[in-house]
Design a protein around this nucleic acid. Structure first.
Lengths: 185, 185
DNA sequence: TTGGAACATGTACCTAGGTACATGTGAAGA
DNA sequence: TCTTCACATGTACCTAGGTACATGTTCCAA
């Protein structure tokens, strides 16, 4: 009975397990849900999702629930799978690694021409504002009761709040940076 | 003269190039500066830094400036290297991919026991607040004039503001999430 | 009836970054 | 003098994720 000592991360794996904890779904479903819900904090490619599902099934953390048209296979999480994600959520160390090329670039703004920088910051501000709006939209829809009131939607509401605040902060920053950079002239 | 069509990203490469644009430095210096300045938005391991420096030198984007004691090699950016990073900064598409395991986890909070969740959010809030303080500290030191007033420090000031706002937003969110989750009872 | 779009699942290969470990050097203090 | 620590540079291997491409299916609308 050797323990599978795969370390801390493996977020794609636990992302899929978490989504499947809500109910059965196919790889295709999961790819879309991942993209919509988690896309901007955790990108996942379709091919990788299918591969991981097969691995999870082989390990008994999920199982095929039904087979539908077009070779569709829906998976269901097993007891063992539920244990695994709960274990990850509670005892797993949080990996705080964050990568933002946007912020990395900001350390090198001094290498850019003023008008290029202005253009860049405008584009960035627009992008961040758009993402912020997307999450705010979800949060408001939830608050209007559009998605019912299960525990899952309440979690999603909390996640959406994070997305909203995060991107709003970045949008505000990009605005602020424009005036900060303008004073350099 | 074949163009090197390496795509958009390669941030480690441009991070190093950007730091070297400020002045000559050794791999060891760069590893520390990377860690201090950019560590939480772009982690970089020492071995990878040395490897990338060798590659950059082979491509003529940087060159050895001096050799010191203990096998120390300091690199200097070349004209071509400067062109390369400016090109990346202005014409390169920004990769907005962001990965936050913290936020990914938040979509699955409903799977956690209330007291576990409370503990988790407290730890998270503390971590985010600490990072926010770190960046705020740098920003304030710069505003007091502790780092002089070159174009580079002004850029760093802007980057620090981003780090501060980002982590402050996350810290506030973690606080907010605690009360949001508490109402579930 | 036919053609396109969305559904659905993969294989194969590539790249970037992460981790473990090895090795040597010079300075400073016990 | 000896040890320890920070300085300094790497090699080798692993893993996770990214990209390109292949393939078959059902439905719907022109």
């Amino acid at each position: 009975m050797e323990e599978d000592v795969r370390s801390v991360w493996m977020s794609l794996r636990y992302g899929l397990l978490g989504l499947l904890a809500e109910g059965p779904a196919s790889g295709y479903d999961l790819a879309r849900r991942f993209e919509q819900m988690l896309g901007s904090v955790w990108p996942a490619q379709q091919p990788k999702i299918y591969a991981e599902l097969n691995r999870l099934a082989a390990e008994g953390l999920i199982e095929v629930e039904s087979e539908g048209p077009r070779r569709r296979k829906a998976y269901r999480i097993t007891e063992e799978g539920l244990r695994a994600i709960r274990e990850w959520l509670t005892s797993g160390e949080v990996d705080h690694t964050l990568r933002s090329q946007s912020l990395l670039r900001s350390a090198f703004f001094w290498l850019m021409e003023p008008q290029e920088l202005r253009r860049h910051l405008e584009t960035e501000a627009a992008f961040f504002a758009q993402e912020a709006a997307r999450y705010r939209g979800f949060a408001e829809a939830k608050d209007r009761g559009e998605f019912g009131d299960g525990p899952q939607t309440r979690s999603l509401r909390i996640a959406a709040e994070a997305g909203h605040r995060l991107y709003q902060a970045l949008a505000d920053w990009a605005e602020w940076a424009q005036s900060a950079a303008a004073q350099e002239r």
